[in-house]
Nucleic acid binder design. Structure first.
Length: 328
DNA sequence: AATGATACTCGGC
DNA sequence: TTACGGCCGAGTATCATT
């Protein structure tokens, strides 16, 4: 029985029985300071064992539920873009009118509660939904939207994470409205052309409008944690073989060929590095790439002295081949 | 110099 | 005292081609 308990949902890496991180945690757990991304061992120290349940993530199950919710939302809204496994962005001429019905339909279908935000901009809607968590509905007009966003902590703005927030605070901005005091040139210098311009607009109350289009997946990757950290190419390549098969199952199912293969390395200091190379002609999922993998691994080991903790493989630059099915 | 392709890092969820 | 996943896309740097 899990009623009244702290529920910690974890990604177990398999390295040791408790190694891994927290994926998510219920509100009782959050009150104790447990949060996503936290090492499982740290969460254990913060939670009373008798009142806490640690569960592994079950992504297949979440995907199934996600599909049910997707169908509900699409039955109500003119335009829908699924943003992640548990977030949808939608447009409708009668957004404020249907929001409550959508909440109720999702509850009826899945017995889950959700939060809905309605606002003139996508950014405002997302923040309104976040603000009304865990079971809320918040509808804003343009004035209320500006009031909410400009008065918000920079860290609460989707698109501003820990690193960006820290850099903004170093420039004197704690609240969104403070960003307007930073010269646009400084924003561009610090955050780059695109992000700098976006932040500048944010400070001035210019929030991007629509949803954009649903995007096609452009790469597939599989990453895993090694039993122990190592620099042994044989160990690394062995793990990569497993991961390659998994990624290629996806390619096969989606009937995709690829032109780019990349290897992802996470070193003992938890820093991520990548090495990739592209082929002139697209490769099918049955083609051998062991030479290329070895090249990329050797190349990385030659230029980085640290031990490797996790490795991954990535396929990208998918090609539409038209009638050339003989490749497979 | 301009354009497009590729390589790589960052960070959200 | 420390403890640490598995994805994905965006953005930008860098390279190749013309």
């Amino acid at each position: 029985m899990t009623k009244g308990k702290i529920i910690v949902v974890c990604v177990y890496s398999g390295r040791t029985p408790d190694s891994g991180v927290v994926s998510t945690v219920n509100y009782d757990g959050r009150r104790l300071g447990i949060h996503s991304g936290m090492p499982i061992m740290q969460a254990k120290k913060l939670s009373p064992p008798a009142d806490t349940v640690f569960l592994p993530v079950d992504k297949e199950y979440y995907s199934q539920i996600s599909g049910y919710i997707d169908a509900v939302i699409r039955s109500y809204c003119k335009k829908v873009v699924q943003a992640s496994i548990d977030e949808w962005n939608a447009e409708d001429d009668n957004a404020a009118g249907i929001a409550k019905s959508i909440k109720e339909a999702i509850k009826k279908e899945t017995s889950l509660v959700c939060s809905v935000g309605v606002s003139p901009s996508l950014l405002g809607a997302k923040m309104a939904a976040s603000k009304s968590k865990p079971d809320g509905l918040l509808i804003l007009d343009r004035d209320k939207e500006v009031e909410m966003i400009s008065g918000s902590d920079i860290e609460k703005v989707p698109g501003i994470g820990g690193k960006t927030a820290e850099a903004l605070r170093a420039l004197g901005a704690t609240w969104v409205k403070d960003i307007a005091k930073i010269p646009p040139l400084v924003l561009v210098e610090t955050f780059g052309r695109k992000s700098g311009a976006w932040l500048n607009g944010l400070g001035k109350g210019e929030y991007d409008g629509g949803l954009g289009e649903e995007k096609e997946q452009v790469e597939v990757s599989r990453i895993g944690t090694l039993k122990e950290k190592t620099r042994d190419p044989y160990m690394i390549l062995g793990k990569l073989d497993e991961l390659e098969s998994e990624a290629k199952e996806w390619l096969m199912g989606m009937k995709k060929s690829y032109k780019t293969v990349g290897i992802i390395f996470v070193t003992e200091n938890l820093k991520t590095h990548t090495k990739s190379s592209s082929f002139k002609n697209p490769k099918g999922w049955n083609e051998d790439i062991s030479k290329e993998k070895k090249m990329l691994v050797d190349e990385f080991l030659a230029e980085n002295p640290l031990e490797i903790r996790r490795v991954g493989i990535r396929f990208g630059n998918f090609m539409d081949l038209g009638g050339q099915t003989t490749l497979f």
